[in-house]
């Protein structure tokens, strides 16, 4: 049949056979079919991710001159980013705040996830919805609600005053790194709960029974079975909280005060108030590298540790 088809298409037998050859290749190569299907997604993602990053890297080597940009190559921005004590301090503070917040969130969420995974037998889904529901409400409003609570005339201060426990509002509540940590912990709690819960839920209960049978008490069972097996969830949770919180500028801006500002706030300012885009680009790239380095080191260390446990 194929031979007849080529012969009857006298006009352009060449092209026809090319098309046929392509069709045959298409049928034969599963990878080709797969990549054809994946190409729209791949192209959009690659284009919308890679191009901006390339341009941002380029810009980080330029200089802002008033309202114009001098596109001659210079390392001055990076020089400033490293030398300027303000940036280093802000970067350090960002890492500290979001590191503390990540640690705190995971620590307070683990028992909760543990409770739902091991001690809730009826209406599990209800508990899961309850735990994740606040997460679906506006991020800004959740941050703002902490301003209401912690503020100078906020819920805690005005409540305590109304009760006659204090005369003057407690000022340390709002506009401090602590306020930022509490607010972020609250805002990202769902990101800690879910991965930990999933990894706990996956643990085969008969492993615990086997451990009990072999003479381990509750503490030993937790330390030797439950905790090691849930570590992947804990690791996923820490990364999923650390990365977005380190780049947050809304929470510090709303509840952080001058002592709670983070690197992201200064990056935001470079693109707004300060209007020094090349410097902003350099800071953004510095941040990206630091975050990536911290995350990779963290993953490497936890891998080593879990390998040792196993």
């Amino acid at each position: 049949m194929s031979i007849e088809a080529t012969a009857s298409g006298e006009g352009m037998p060449e092209r026809k056979s090319w098309r046929r050859r392509f069709r045959a290749l298409f049928l034969r190569s599963e990878a080709l079919r797969g990549y054809t299907l994946l190409s729209p997604t791949m192209l959009v993602m690659a284009f919308a991710m890679c191009l901006p990053f390339i341009v941002m890297v380029l810009m980080s080597f330029w200089t802002q001159k008033g309202f114009d940009i001098d596109t001659s190559f210079t390392l001055n921005n990076y020089q400033e980013a490293i030398d300027g004590p303000i940036y280093e301090a802000l970067l350090f503070r960002s890492l500290m705040i979001s590191g503390t917040c990540t640690l705190a969130t995971v620590l307070i969420s683990y028992p909760m996830a543990y409770y739902v995974a091991f001690h809730v037998h009826k209406r599990k889904l209800l508990w899961i919805i309850l735990m994740t529901l606040p997460f679906w409400t506006s991020y800004l409003l959740r941050v703002f609600s902490w301003k209401i609570i912690l503020g100078y005339n906020g819920a805690i201060n005005s409540g305590l005053k109304a009760l006659g426990l204090i005369d003057q509002p407690l000022e340390f509540l709002l506009y401090s790194p602590t306020a930022v940590i509490i607010t972020l912990a609250h805002a990202w709690a769902a990101f800690a709960i879910l991965p930990i819960y999933v990894s706990l839920e996956k643990i085969d209960r008969s492993l615990l029974e086997a451990a009990a049978d072999l003479g381990e008490g509750p503490v030993g069972r937790f330390l030797r079975i439950t905790l090691p097996l849930s570590l992947p969830g804990v690791i996923a949770a820490t990364i999923m909280i650390f990365i977005p919180t380190v780049g947050d500028y809304v929470t510090p801006a709303l509840v952080g005060g001058p002592n709670g500002l983070m690197l992201a706030n200064i990056i935001e300012a470079q693109f707004g108030r300060i209007n020094n885009w090349p410097m902003g680009a350099a800071l953004a790239i510095t941040m990206l590298f630091v975050v990536a380095a911290v995350t990779l080191i963290y993953i490497w260390i936890t891998r080593k540790l879990t390998a040792r446990i196993a």
């Binding site: 049949m1 194929s2 046929r20 069709r23 045959a24 049928l27 034969r28 599963e30």
Partner: peptide, 22 residues
């Protein structure tokens, strides 16, 4: 059935090669 294609060789059904048929 055509869900995998042979790495080498050919399958004929009723004399027709199948490699180009989905």
């Amino acid at each position: 059935a055509g869900f995998e294609s042979p790495t080498t060789g050919e399958i004929y059904i009723d004399g027709l090669p199948m490699s180009e048929k989905a």
